[in-house]
Design a protein around this nucleic acid. Structure first.
Lengths: 335, 335
DNA sequence: ATGACCGATGTAATCGTTTCCATGCGCGGC
DNA sequence: GCCGCGCATGGAAACGATTACATCGGTCAT
């Protein structure tokens, strides 16, 4: 593979000059620049980014660590992040944590070893040594969607609390009184926020939230199945289930089908995170939608601010309820 | 950030020795090795992969360019690829082509600029200059799922032809006679294979395939909507539609809903690529399933063979039909 | 006693860039 | 006619690792 020296030789100039035209610095005679450019294209020379980054100490690359690449919410986020980053002249390297702390930390370290300029992360549950160290070491870093308490890192997210309250009101209006929730991992910030909002909305409506109606999930499909199985082994199963992400809602549907239960006839279902398929499921699923793309765009904006030496603050957007038929019929959903 | 020199200084040895213990070369006294290791952890030193790769001319990184990150088939593939690669000591950098030739080539070049050791790609439609050059330049490369004619690059894929024939037989048995297909981009190899298999199966069953029943899509949702709109503007619309990927099937459903048409009552629907949601749609969708994970694993195996100097051959797996209710009821699907 | 050899370590070249500094040249002002 | 200046360019030192080769004691066979 041709290097800058080959280009220099062919153009009859020094490597310094080649570098100058490549990074279009001023002060190169037009004719020289042209000679270099032809040499570049004749050799189809491409600069070695490794060498370049080593020298300049910047990679123009952002790392993105997501919870689960099989979760449509995260892929939509990743798509938005990559688009925005590309527009700003950055590449993105995605790490999929598969909701596992160890795998997340593996990716964080790998990305740091590559000397990425900044890190965008939606941290998994638990205390991440790698992230804590990175934050302390001053790596430009922004949390998106999920976060870790006690770290001074800007956060871009959607506040789902009001939408959860709306959801509870919606379920209550439809006559449901035994509402259950499937949470994410214990220490998950988003899941806890959703649980707290759920709990306080139930209180507001004078409804109880027995321990048995709080199912411990992990944001992945299988846990939705498992928790649902538990719910329906209860002497008095819930009459509505709220899954705090879309993959667990899928698990719920799978298990209900296995149990021969119908939505919303036997039980209602709602999910956090709206995805295109929710419109076409049987029945269409009521969901809380986040402005996923804007989340991605804003997160990249914040991160590049940090990377380029500007300061960045947290951003909170809002989520909203999209009522469909999975919680029963009312005047809004019947059509 | 600490460098190898700092470690050397702290351990009271030369950088060469540090490097030796880091890459566990033999011939370092046990006590020296221990001293180095403590220095490493005290400084929490991590080798700079840029420098390392520059020197050794290998990155232990594979590039993966997929058609569309929003397509569950590709994310499942990406997941499998990353798993397998990690097991073999490689990282993966994903590039999302969004089904656009230009974006695909952008990613291919970016990956090559990063000096990845090998490239796994599911090429988009059309003549890719970047891929052609890479193949000619001898970059270790493997195609997965899709391919480009005329390039001598191993291919790992599933042959869908038999399954498509099965699908047509299934539709025919259910009484459908006006079968339509939504293809991918014109030059897409997989889409063409599916179209040809469809056409010859129709022939076998004595059914016509009028031009109006061949809808030109692009593997993305919007094209499914658009083509469906066209089908139902025809004087005699089809009674069954076969979408050659899952995203276009989603588009079909969206448009049918808009038109107030029901599946399978008004029209049947089947898709290539099975995804978990197809079980829960209204009605569940008949699909042709590929062994996606195995595709990913085998592709990585082939690519690492190439990278590590062994030879690699193409692999062809098979796909199979999963009949559900979206094509109407028969004894297999009723339960 | 001597030289060959071996094991443990250090020195320095190298990978492909960028960039600081030096150099050479032409030109205008005096 | 000389000085100084600016412009275009080149030389060489980094960046942080790996690794071929040199070095240096010490051991052992002769």
């Amino acid at each position: 593979m041709a290097g800058i020296k080959d280009v220099a030789k062919r153009a009859g100039v020094s490597v310094a000059t080649v570098s100058r035209v490549l990074n279009d610095h001023s002060g190169v005679r037009e004719e020289t620049r042209a000679r270099v450019l032809t040499a570049v294209s004749e050799l189809s020379y491409r600069p070695n980014t490794l060498a370049r980054s080593l020298r300049t100490d910047q990679t123009r690359t952002l790392g993105l660590v997501i919870g689960d690449v099989l979760n449509p919410f995260f892929t939509e986020l990743a798509r938005a992040v990559e688009d925005e980053a590309r527009g700003r002249g950055y590449s993105v390297i995605i790490g999929n944590a598969d909701e596992q702390l160890a795998l997340q930390d593996h990716h964080v370290r790998t990305l740091l070893d590559r000397r990425i300029d900044g890190l965008l992360v939606s941290p998994a549950d638990g205390d991440s040594v790698a992230l804590r160290e990175a934050a302390l070491a001053g790596i430009p870093m922004v949390f998106v969607d999920r976060w870790i308490e006690g770290l001074d890192v800007p956060l871009v997210r959607a506040d789902g609390r009001e939408a959860v309250r709306e959801l509870v009101a919606h379920l209550h209006a439809l006559g449901h009184r035994r509402l259950a929730i499937i949470t994410g991992p214990v220490a998950s910030t988003t899941s806890n926020e959703r649980l707290e909002a759920f709990r306080s909305a139930l209180e507001e409506f004078g409804l109880p939230l027995p321990g048995g109606y709080i199912g411990q999930g992990d944001f992945q499909t299988a846990s939705g199945r498992r928790v649902t199985e538990g719910f329906f082994a209860l002497p008095e199963p819930p009459d509505a289930v709220f899954a705090t992400d879309n993959l667990m809602a899928l698990g719920v549907m799978e298990q209900l089908r296995r149990l021969g239960l119908r939505v919303p006839h036997d039980v209602s279902l709602a999910a956090f995170d709206d995805i295109p398929w929710f419109l076409h499921t049987d029945p269409p699923i009521t969901a809380i939608a986040q402005p996923t793309q804007e989340l991605g765009h804003r997160a990249v904006a914040a991160l590049t601010d940090l990377v380029e030496g500007r300061s960045a603050g947290s951003v909170t957007l809002s989520a909203h309820l999209i009522a469909r038929r999975s919680c029963g019929e009312d005047e809004r959903t019947r059509r």
